[in-house]
Structures are given as C-alpha cells and as structure tokens.
Simulated assay, not measured.
Amino acid sequence: MNKLIKKTLKLILPIVLGGFILYWVYRDFDFAKALDVLTHGTKWGWMLLSLVFGVLAQVVRGWRWKQTLEPLGAFPKTGDCINAIFVSYAASLVIPRMGEVSRCGILSRYDDVSFAKSLGTVVTERLVDMLCIGLITGVTVLLQFPVFTLFLEQTGTKIPSLLYLFTSVWFYIILLCGIGVIVLLYYLMRALSFFEKVKGVVLHVWEGIMSLRNVKNIPLFITYTVLIWLSYFIHFYLTFFCFSFTEHLSVLAALVMFVGGTFAVIVPTPNGAGPWHFAIISMMMLYGVNATDAGIFALIVHGIQTFLVVLLGIYGLVVLSFKKKSTAFTA
C-alpha cells in the first residue's frame, strides 16, 4: 500500500504543482481573447516552421545518443534511437524525468543494448546539456544584465528587504518550484541507492558515463550538440513571428526568455507547465508586452509545443510496435 501511495504521489504532485502555478498565473485571464488569437491571430506558417526545428532537435539528439553508445560496443539502429527519444519526451509529460529511463528500456528491449550502460550515456548527455545551458546563460546575462536584474527585482528574488520577500506572491511561486526540484533530486538519489544494491549495475552506469572519452568523432559530437541547442532556440524564437504583439521582439529578448524558460522546465511539472508560463510572461512584460498578450503567447506556444511532443511520442510508439522485440533484456 505504501508503494502504491508513493507512486500515486509521484504522479499527482507534479500535476498539482503545475496546476497551482497555472491557476495563479491565469486566475483573471481572458481565455476568450486567447481563443480568438489562436483562431484568427496566429500566423500558422511561422508556427509550422517552428515545429520543424522542434522535431529536428529531437532527431539530432537521437543521432548524438547513438554516437555515445558506439564506444560501448552498442550499435542500435538510428531509427530506434530517434523513436526512443520521441517516446522519452512524451513519457516525461506523464511522470517528469521518466523519459531518461524509458528510452534506455526501449533500446534494451529492441536492440540488446545494456540498460545500465545506456543510462550512463544519458547521464553524460545531461552533463553536456548542463554545460551548454551554463554557457548560454553566461553569455545572455552578460548581454542583457539589466533585464535579469529587473526580473529578479520584480519577482521578489532579489531581496531589498525581508518584508518585501515575504509579501511577494511571485517569490512563493519560485519557492514552490525550488521545492519541486528538491523533491525530484530526492527521488533520483533514492533511485541511485536502489541501483547500488544491484550487483554490477553501477559499474555499467559508470562505463556509460565515461563513454564520451572514446567517442570517435568529437567534432561531429560537438556539431550535434550545437545543432540541438540551436534548434531548440529557433524552435522558440520563430514563435515570436506568429503574433503581432511579439513579432517586433529582438533575438536578444528571445535569448533571455529562452534561458528563463530552460531553467523553468527543470521544475518537475509536465513539460514545465506553470513555471515556464510564469518565466516567459514575467520576462516578456519586461520588453513592453502587456500581461494579457504575454499570457496568450505562453498559453498557445506551450500548448502547441506540448501537442507536438505528444504526437511524436505516439509516432515513436507506433513505429516501435511493428518491430520485433529482442529475445534478451540486457541489464
């Protein structure tokens, strides 16, 4: 019964957290206007072009993942790597961060790739992604430092006084997000403790982590990494041209919001729902977009991009369902 309760909480709490933040952000929102913009005020040509880059980012991530598996003596089909990525993103909508586990399970099932070793390569990917986020953030902060300072002041995270800190609603939203991240880290540590009890698994995971040292074509790996993050950014930036109230925003403005949104999705809610909206709306208002239009932008863009993730996940599952499963499940 306790295990059932824990599993239920792991499923429900992220949804509750995201739902609460969404409710607060959109509690007095004019949804009729958002629907009108969606049906009559959205330039779908730009939106479709944006989605192309969203797909490209996931495809290239599949290519890069295959490259990191090769030093381990694992040679899964390229299509399986890509479809596993598609499914992993969709799985994370149900249980945040579940995708990392699900994609390793897919390759183990269909390509005889060691689950533990592939999990190690995923850890390596995440470390590389963290480095990329750090570099992008550093450059962006240097270029737009006054904007970040103003954002921190208006959201109550730059503390002019303790009184202001505890009376800022935005501070409590950020606090909830921080708690969510801590809970996620707790469950990851619990998972690691479980793996340590399984003989040989940790060694396999470490072997996967160190696979980057033996990647044959480092320039290609770097190219894939740059292309992934460039595609993510273009995927977001092109959505500015979908609406009359955001098409005037600069590349630097998009970069600031991209960084804010990237950190927001770390919070364990389905596809960053709630924290992402809060970050994008708050930052967009700093560039002169009114609260209603910023809310419309966040609602429509996040909704369509999430729908894309769902569609790709379904596509990946359908394609994989026609494949013959491996006769052995490799740990």
Rank of each mutant, 00 (worst) to 15 (best):
G18H: 05
L22V: 15
W24C: 02
V37C: 04
K43G: 01
G45E: 10
W46R: 04
S50R: 08
V52C: 13
F53C: 08
V55P: 04
L56K: 01
A57K: 01
V59W: 09
V59R: 07
W63I: 05
K66V: 01
P71T: 07
G79E: 09
D80G: 00
A84S: 15
Y89G: 05
V94P: 03
P96L: 04
V101H: 00
A116R: 05
G120W: 05
T121K: 02
V122T: 13
V123C: 01
M130N: 06
L131Y: 02
L152F: 15
L163D: 15
L163F: 13
Y164H: 15
C177F: 00
L188K: 01
F194D: 13
V198S: 09
K199N: 08
L203E: 13
P219F: 13
T223C: 14
S231Y: 02
F233P: 11
T239C: 13
F241H: 14
H248P: 06
L252V: 04
L255R: 06
G261T: 10
I266F: 09
T269A: 14
S282A: 15
M285K: 12
V289G: 03
G295W: 06
H302C: 07
I304A: 07
I314V: 15
L317A: 03
L320I: 14
K324N: 13
F329V: 11
A331Q: 13
